[in-house]
C-alpha cells in the first residue's frame, strides 16, 4: 500500500513517486501522512518534508506553501522546494552572508526590501541546517571552511 506524493514549486516539479509515508511541516506541527489519510488542506511552515519508501528516505527543504492530502495522493505546492542532496552549500552560505550584511546595515523595517532580505536569510538558514543534518554523504558541508 503506497501513497502518491507530488512536490511542485512554481518553476518545476521537484518530486513525484509512490511512497510509504510523507512527513510534512504542517501549520499545526509535524504531520505524518500514510495511505488512506483523511482529506486535509494545510499550509506549510519553513521546514523539511521527509518521504520514505522501503528503507530509503528522501528529504526536501520547503520554504512554506500548501499541501493537499487526499486518501491516495499528497500534493505539495511549495514556494520553493529542493532535495537536500541538491543544495549548493556554498551558494546558500553566500546568500546568508549577503542577507545578514544587508540587515546589519540597517534596512528600514517593514519595507519590501527588509521583508525580502529576512525571507532570504530564513531560507538560506533552512537550507544550510537541512544540508548539515540530513545529507547522506558523510562529509560535513562545513568541512571545506
Amino acid at each position: 500500500m503506497t501513497i502518491r506524493c507530488e512536490i511542485v514549486s512554481q518553476d518545476r516539479t521537484v518530486f513525484t513517486g509512490d511512497v510509504d509515508i510523507v512527513v510534512l511541516p504542517g501549520a499545526a506541527g509535524e504531520m505524518g501522512v500514510l495511505p488512506k489519510h483523511a482529506p486535509v488542506l494545510t499550509t506549510l511552515k519553513f521546514g523539511v518534508i521527509k518521504v520514505r519508501k522501503g528503507g530509503r528516505e528522501e528529504i526536501f527543504t520547503v520554504a512554506g506553501g500548501v499541501a493537499e492530502v487526499q486518501p491516495d495522493i499528497v500534493t505539495v505546492l511549495a514556494d520553493a522546494a529542493e532535495n537536500v542532496e541538491e543544495i549548493d552549500v556554498a551558494r546558500a552560505n553566500a546568500a546568508r552572508v549577503r542577507a545578514e550584511e544587508a540587515l546589519a546595515k540597517g534596512v528600514p523595517a517593514d519595507t519590501d526590501v527588509y521583508l525580502a532580505m529576512e525571507a532570504a536569510l530564513r531560507k538560506s538558514n533552512l537550507r544550510l541546517d537541512a544540508a548539515r543534518r540530513y545529507r547522506k554523504n558523510s562529509r560535513s558541508p562545513y568541512s571545506e571552511q
Binding site: Q10, A27, P39, V40, T42, T43, I73, L77
Partner: peptide
Amino acid sequence: TGPAAAYEYEPDMRVILDEIIPR
C-alpha cells in the same frame, strides 16, 4: 484526483486560500 471529500483545514480555509490564490 478523485471525488472531493470534505476537507479538514489547518489552520483554516481562509488562511489557505490566502496562500494559494494570490500565488
